[in-house]
Nucleic acid binder design. Structure first.
Length: 539
RNA sequence: GGCCCCUUCGUCUAAGGGUUAGGACGCGGCCCUUUCACGGCUGAAAUACGGGUUCGAAGCCCGUAGGGGUCACCA
């Protein structure tokens, strides 16, 4: 026996085949019925559903690429939906950046907030009424209930449970409320959330394309909040409702969702809907094998663009994680990724996002796919254009006596990291002590990350606040930034330079400086950020 | 910690019970070359561990270890 690849007849149901152990077990559970890939009554529809709460992440692009390839290969369609139900963190800037980044990579979608479509709106914040309606149906059918517990009570409860070494779960207090009590509380205007009910016993079987059957005890599943007290749904409700309403047939998402799959399946069951085929994809990892994070790696797609990578190299690189290459050339095209796509070829272990192969690929694209004129054109698109050069002209014009001075003064605008920067150089002539210098970079970094709009005012405010928090003169601190950002002790106006360089390159240069000085531990970051908060509340 | 997932060179990966465990990046060496790249050749480098099953195990089963994910009115 052993692991077997499906014979041709099985190929149609390929995602039902267990990849590891008992490989031919079929999904026969009532709640998850297989859909045929060739079922013309239900064309393949996949989706990418980013949350606009930060920079466009390479992990998003990787998941998007998989959904795109799968849909394209089978003549289906990819949808883009914006999951912006977190009012506090979602921003239009982030949404725009994510759309731009995916377009830059050459991925496109048949329906989405920018192109519309028959199942819109495609922004969850604009679908409130739909969720309310569905949530009310769940309550009416006895599958969900209002919960009036306060956040304080809940966190205290969790603390107690953890202290008693019990799994932290909602204890069901509000489950026993009578209708009279509920209307009383509503009348008083006590805020509430809506939670889903979970069966008291039994197990949930999740059929995962790559892993086969995964079992969860309902007893260990929490009574998830479906509707927040602000009236907006949580991910779980919105996601299930939208996937159904938008006709999504295959959900391919990150592995971090496996443990909430039982809740989602339960919701499909409560609504009486057929769930999509679920595929959980391995995560992209930092070098230390933890989930890829911007603390440890550049994760923004915009960073890779600014650093001068070609979009086709980036797509190719991401494609390496989903294509079994055998002995073929690893340089490939998006079309080939689509043609060769087979979800079963995705290996289950998470992949370390090590960009050295991206560098190699990018070099090959530059020397093999374009002549000198074509290359020059790409360089123009990247930086040698008026939009990028104008601010540089503005900064340099009055500082040089002849145009040939330009090279030395502006080289840093055409670099990624400052190569050759040393610890000695970074410390030369800096009046701050080493600790203060590390604090300065760290605090600037965390404030830069939090900046909604990247502009000179924000940069200015950040550096001033940093100096204030460390109780050092701005002038003394500036030198440390000149060295980290430009590699030189002086040059064009710093704030303008930082603004022009952009958030991603700044992050990389400050990270570089911190590598030389000794990266801040989590504990240090926390303590230093407290310093900043204190100083801000005083000033 | 509970639950769940995972484990082939440093990294990305190939190998449907039988291969000297293959390729690629990176690293080293040699060649080409005015330099540096490119290119060519070449070297070192892996089946986490322990038990089974089998004529035969990287692969199947069990256990152990390690790593990861998740346990929010974030997604």
């Amino acid at each position: 026996m052993g692991r077997q690849k499906p014979a041709n007849a099985w190929r149609e149901h390929v995602w039902l085949i267990r990849r590891d152990k008992d490989c031919r077990r079929r999904a026969d559970s009532m709640i998850q019925r297989p859909i045929s890939m060739t079922d013309t009554a239900r064309p393949i529809r996949t989706r990418i559903a980013p949350s606009p709460t930060g920079d466009p992440h390479v992990g998003t692009a990787y998941i998007a690429l998989i959904n795109y390839c799968f849909a394209k290969k089978h003549g289906g369609e990819l949808l883009l939906r914006i999951e912006d139900t977190d009012q506090a963190r979602s921003t239009p800037q982030s949404e725009k950046a994510i759309l731009d980044a995916l377009k830059w990579l050459g991925l496109d979608w048949a329906e989405g907030p920018d192109v519309g479509g028959p199942h819109g709106p495609y922004r969850q914040s604009e679908r409130s009424a739909i969720y309310t309606e569905h949530c009310e149906k769940l309550m009416a059918d006895g599958h969900a209930f209002k919960c009036y517990c306060t956040a304080e009570k809940l966190s205290q409860m969790r603390k107690d449970q953890i202290a008693r070494k019990k799994p932290p779960r909602y204890d069901g207090t509000c489950l026993s409320l009578t209708d009279v009590e509920r209307s009383e509380l509503d009348l008083q205007g006590v805020p509430h959330v809506v939670r889903m009910k979970i069966p008291e016993s039994g197990t949930c079987e999740v059929q995962d394309t790559l892993r086969g059957k995964i079992e969860f005890e309902y007893a260990a599943v929490d009574m998830q909040v479906l509707m927040k007290s602000d009236g907006l749904p949580t991910y779980h409700l919105a996601n299930v409702v939208d996937d159904h309403l938008m006709g999504i047939t295959h959900v391919m998402r990150g592995e971090e969702w496996i443990s909430s799959a039982p809740k989602h399946l339960l919701l499909y069951q409560y609504f009486g809907w057929e769930p999509p085929v679920l595929t959980h994809l391995p995560l992209l990892l930092n070098a230390d094998k933890s989930k890829l994070s911007k603390r440890k790696n550049p994760t923004s797609i915009l960073y890779y663009r600014r650093a001068g990578y070609l979009s086709e190299a980036m797509v190719n690189f991401l494609g390496l994680f989903i294509k079994s290459s055998g002995e073929e050339d690893e340089k490939t095209t998006l079309q080939a990724l689509i043609d060769d796509f087979d979800v079963q070829h995705i290996s289950l272990g998470g992949s370390v996002f090590d960009t050295s192969k991206l560098d190699w690929l990018n070099g090959r694209y530059m020397r093999e796919d374009m002549d000198a004129a074509g290359f020059l054109e790409r360089v123009r698109e990247w930086a040698l254009n008026d939009a990028y050069m104008m601010p540089i002209a503005d900064m340099t014009q009055s500082r040089i006596t002849k145009m040939s001075d330009l090279g030395g003064l502006t080289a840093m605008f055409f670099m990624n990291r400052i190569e050759g920067l040393t610890l000695e150089r970074l410390r030369s002539g800096v009046k701050l002590d080493e600790l203060q210098q590390r604090q300065a970079y760290t605090l600037a970094l965390s404030q830069f990350d939090a900046l909604l709009d990247w502009d000179k005012d924000g940069v200015d405010a950040t550096l001033r606040a940093t100096a204030a928090a460390l109780d050092v003169k701005l002038k003394d601190m500036i030198r440390a930034f000149y060295l980290a950002v430009t590699g030189e002790a002086q040059g064009v106006p710093l704030f303008d330079a930082i603004t022009h360089l952009g958030r991603d390159i700044m992050r990389e240069r400050l990270r570089h400086a911190m590598e030389l000085l000794g990266p801040a531990t989590k504990k240090e970051v926390k303590a230093w950020e407290a310093l900043l908060r204190e100083s801000k509340s005083e000033g």
